[in-house]
Each structure stands twice: as structure tokens, then as C-alpha cells.
Design a protein around this nucleic acid. Structure first.
Ligand SMILES: NC(=O)c1ccc[n+]([C@@H]2O[C@H](COP(=O)([O-])OP(=O)(O)OC[C@H]3O[C@@H](n4cnc5c(N)ncnc54)[C@H](O)[C@@H]3O)[C@@H](O)[C@H]2O)c1
Ligand SMILES: NC(=O)c1ccc[n+]([C@@H]2O[C@H](COP(=O)([O-])OP(=O)(O)OC[C@H]3O[C@@H](n4cnc5c(N)ncnc54)[C@H](O)[C@@H]3O)[C@@H](O)[C@H]2O)c1
Lengths: 241, 241
DNA sequence: GGCATGTTGTGAAAAAATTCACAGATACCA
DNA sequence: TGGTATCTGTGAATTTTTTCACAACATGCC
């Protein structure tokens, strides 16, 4: 393991590799090569190997990677090897989808408490939880000890909520509100913006269709007509988990 | 306007600039400098100017940018200057949040139809819409003419749905399912993965807190102690819309 | 063992993205 | 009018990220 900082794109891809590996394990696959990963994830084999090289050596030349072993390594790197309680703020439409999202558990994330400031909602059930008063945030988290929080309140309330979260000891925030949060340097924030994603899609509609429909068979060419073309295309569809 | 391809990060930031500009217009601000944008968005002034330079010249030296004018330009670039119907597939938890999301309208996106394959759900109301049978996808979109679709079905159904969407004439897909879609080259896909975001947050919890708590006042220094520090920190919180 | 095949890990090269730094434009003021 | 302050747009420098390409290793087969 080197001393170099790990690029953020690498961290993002790690989560994708993990998804692919979990699927493979489910399917009973014991071993995968970097080219298998490329086929399954759309991320190039070289990229995969380089990404892993930031953390150590996990494969065997001539063989590939042990599915089980690599899963364990990536989970350790990403800190997914332990139960992680999270706080959710905002018991609205989006919050409802989030508390009902079963996939969190597969990575040992767990929404441990939900907060709102609407008196009508406080005390009501929300998924498996009871909606708590946002005023009790610090108090409740003293019990839970969550370090991660999700902000799902309207944009104009997000900054205030962020400050309360920081005060309650939160060190990482997933922000769904369309606003740029100002937080102290020890708090890490990631923003999710559906509108941003849609805007990028929209832009591409405006562009000349670089690719014609000719020759599309539904198959990805194993012997690409133009090597760069496959890489470029697949790249765009590759960073899900 | 040059012939260069526009970097994807630039497109993503454009949406953030637009949000900031809309807020400013709302507040009655007529003119903004690139440093104002930096303060409001967390994206550096130089980055902002460079980003715009891919599309032309929009500012006046010594003055800044006309809020109204720049909004119009960015909307045109991002193709947000017209009504855009979208198809939503998957009338589940996430779909419910999406149909109820009012902010889409601010950028002239509109969910024009919702599809599901669950007989119990088909025909029921869903937001302002009635859930349609996925089998009628092509037929319905012949009327609507949507080019953008949102996939909110379980991962194991996503590829099949993507193919149906392509067949129905969709050219851009926002995919919430945790899987890598294979689509023809003329279709542009963006993936949104909450788990990926959480994984990156989780990784950062594991890291040494580079920053100590000393000196944090809750105020962003207007006359930064160390200019680079502010930029670096704010950067992490900067790409919402 | 010797050889063919397949795969990793990684420096080096290339490409992409960001930041710098400054010429030149604009406004304002006395 | 000239002087000062402010701000844009952009080539160039720098930094970051991706891709290439190959030595070194593993396996299986004869
Ligand atoms: N609904 C979506 O699909 C969607 C998509 C992308 C982004 N978002 C964003 O997510 C956020 C939430 O969206 P939503 O659709 O769930 O909104 P919503 O109005 O349904 O829910 C917001 C909830 O936050 C609560 N709230 C408001 N101020 C609060 C405060 N200070 N403290 C605690 N709780 C507070 C409200 O009482 C409400 O229950 C918004 O910022 C929205 O822009 C939503
Ligand atoms: N709920 C969340 O907060 C959340 C967060 C991130 C990602 N996701 C992802 O979004 C997707 C949907 O999540 P959800 O929570 O809404 O799930 P859900 O089970 O509540 O809803 C899925 C819907 O898709 C429908 N469906 C299944 N197969 C279909 C098909 N072939 N054609 C048309 N419709 C079909 C189902 O009938 C159901 O109504 C999943 O892939 C999930 O992983 C959800």
C-alpha cells in the first residue's frame, strides 16, 4: 500500500466492482479475471487493475481474482465490513423511498432514525421507525452514534439541518437538497442531484448523433470495429452499483 | 464556439451554475461576477470562466455576467429551454418520490407517463397519472414522443426495460437500478447510485481526519487565511443543483 | 522440464481536467 | 483625460486520471 492519495473516481468504481463481484458470488463464480470485470461492469480491465493497485495486490497472475477474497478486501477498504447506522432527515417523498430501500442492508448501511420538524409527522410511524423531532437530533444520536446522515429536506432548510447534524457528531453527509452546503473541513459531503443528471442527458440529445443506427445487432462487438468506440460508449453506462 | 468536445464535468457544473443563477434572479440580483459564482457554488471562478468558454463569451470585463442573459444561455446549451416529456418505468417507492417531485418543472422536465408490469398496479392512479402497462410502452410513446426515460425497476428487470425503451425511441436514460445497462451507441445513459455515494462517504470515515477542529468558527472566511484551503474544502460540497 | 497460454501489477506515456496568470476590456472618479 | 480598480477570456503550466505495454508469474499439457 502506497502513500498516494486515492483518486475519487477510483473509490466510485470500487463500489461498482463490488456489485459485480457480489453478483458473481451469487452465481457461484469462484474466480474472475480483470477482463471478466470489464465485460460485467463496462470499466476497462486496465482501469480495474490500476484501481486495485492503490490498495495492494489481490490477484494471482495467470489466474485472476478470488471472488470471495476480493469482496472481503473491497468491503474492508470501503469500510463496508461493519454495521453502519445512518440518520435520515426529512420524512417526505424521498425519505419514504429511502427508508423502504432494502439494498442498503446488503452493504450493512441501516437507517437508524428519521427526523422531521413537522409537528403533524413527528411521532408517526415511517417504515419501521417513528419520526423523531429534529430538535432531539443531538440527544438521539448520542445513543446511536451515527457518523453518516442523509439530508432529504427542502433546499432552504438544508444548510440549517447540516449544521445541526455537524453539531450532533455527523462526519459524512449525503445531500439530496439542491444547494451547496457549507460545512467544517472534517465533514465530507456528497451531493446527489437528479436534475443535474437530467440536464446532462438533455444536453446530449442536442448533439449530433455521432453514431448511426447501422450495424447495431444488439451485441457488443467482441472485435470492435473501432476500439475507442466501444470503450467510450460503455464508459458512459458503467458507474452504477 | 470552438469545435472541441465539451468535458462532462463541465456539463455537470453548468447545471449547478444554473441553480445559483436562478436563486440570484429570484433574489433580484441583476449581475454576478465569476467570484460571486465561486462564493455561491463552491466552484472556482477560473473553472467557471473556463467552463463557459467552451460555449462562447457571455460576460462583460469589469462588470460580470447579466443574470438573466446567462440563465437563458445555459438553458439553451443544456436544452432546458423547451418542455421535455419523460417516461418513468417502475411505479414503486422511488417512482412515487419522482412523480411527486415538483422541481422537475423548474427545468421544464415533465413525467408524461408511468409504466409498470404489475397487474395490480396497472390502471391505478400514481400522482397525476395512471399507471400504464409496460407492454404499451411503444404505443404510448408514439403519442408522447419522449426522448428521455427514467428506469426505477429492480436491477434484474432493468436491462429488459432498457431494451423496450430503446425500441420505443428513447435516446437518453437515467438509470436508478444498480446494474450496468448495455444499450446501442445512440442511447446515452447515466447511472445514479445511492450506494455508491454512501460507499465513498464510508471510505472517508476511515481516513485520518486531515483537518483538526481548531479554528472552525462556523463562518467562511471572506478574507481567507489560506486561500487554497477554502477552495479545496468547498469543492467537495459543490456539485449539487 | 519445456513450452504455450493467460493473467497480474506497474512504470511510463498519453489524455483530460484544472489552475494559473495576465492581456485587454470596462467602469468610475476626480 | 488619466489613473485606479475590477473583471473577463484564454493560452500555458500544472495536476490528475486513464491508457498502454510489458516483465514477471501461474497453470496445464506433453
Ligand atoms: N422527491 C424526489 O424525487 C426528489 C428528487 C431529487 C431531490 N429531491 C430533494 O430532496 C429533498 C426532499 O424532497 P421531498 O420530495 O422528499 O420533499 P418533501 O417536501 O416531500 O419532504 C421534505 C420533508 O422535510 C421536512 N422538513 C422541512 N424542513 C425541515 C427541517 N428544518 N428539519 C427537519 N425536517 C424538515 C418536511 O416536513 C418534509 O417532511 C428536496 O430538497 C428535494 O429537492 C427530491
Ligand atoms: N427506493 C430507493 O430509495 C432506491 C434508492 C436507490 C436505488 N433504487 C433502485 O431503484 C429501483 C426501484 O426501487 P424501488 O424501491 O422503487 O423498488 P420497488 O420494488 O418499490 O418498485 C419497483 C417497481 O418496478 C416494477 N417492475 C418490476 N419489473 C418490471 C418490469 N419488467 N417492467 C415494468 N415494471 C417493473 C414493480 O412492479 C414495482 O412496482 C431499484 O432498482 C432500486 O435498486 C431505489
Amino acid at each position: 500500500m502506497t502513500e498516494t492519495r486515492v483518486p475519487t473516481p477510483t473509490l466510485e468504481r470500487l463500489a461498482t466492482y463490488l456489485r459485480v463481484l457480489l453478483d458473481a458470488r451469487e452465481a457461484g463464480v469462484q474466480t474472475l479475471s480483470s477482463r471478466d470485470i470489464e465485460r460485467l461492469s463496462g470499466i476497462s480491465a486496465a482501469q480495474f487493475r490500476k484501481d486495485l493497485s492503490y490498495f495492494g495486490e489481490f490477484g494471482k497472475p495467470g489466474v485472476g481474482y478470488s471472488t470471495q477474497q476480493l469482496i472481503e478486501c473491497i468491503e474492508r477498504i470501503l469500510r463496508l465490513d461493519r454495521e453502519q447506522p445512518m440518520l435520515l432527515v426529512g420524512a417526505g417523498n424521498l425519505g419514504a423511498a429511502l427508508v423502504g430501500y432494502p439494498n442498503f442492508r446488503a452493504h450493512r448501511f441501516r437507517i437508524a432514525a428519521v427526523f422531521d420538524n413537522n409537528f403533524v409527522k413527528i411521532g408517526r410511524p415511517f417504515g419501521d421507525l417513528i419520526i423523531e423531532d429534529i430538535a432531539r437530533l443531538k440527544e438521539v444520536n448520542a445513543q446511536i452514534g451515527a457518523q453518516i446522515a442523509i439530508i432529504a429536506v427542502p433546499a432552504n432548510a438544508a444548510q440549517e439541518v447540516a449544521e445541526q447534524l455537524v453539531d450532533a457528531g455527523i462526519r459524512a453527509i449525503l445531500n439530496f437538497a439542491p444547494t451547496s452546503l457549507k460545512v467544517p473541513p472534517w465533514v465530507y459531503v456528497r451531493n446527489v442531484s437528479f436534475l443535474q443528471e437530467l440536464a446532462v442527458l438533455s444536453y446530449h440529445l442536442a448533439q449530433e448523433p455521432k453514431h448511426s443506427r447501422d450495424g447495431w445487432t444488439g451485441e457488443l462487438p467482441s472485435e470492435p470495429t473501432r476500439p475507442a468506440s466501444l470503450a467510450a460508449r460503455v464508459k458512459e453506462t458503467s458507474d452504477a452499483i
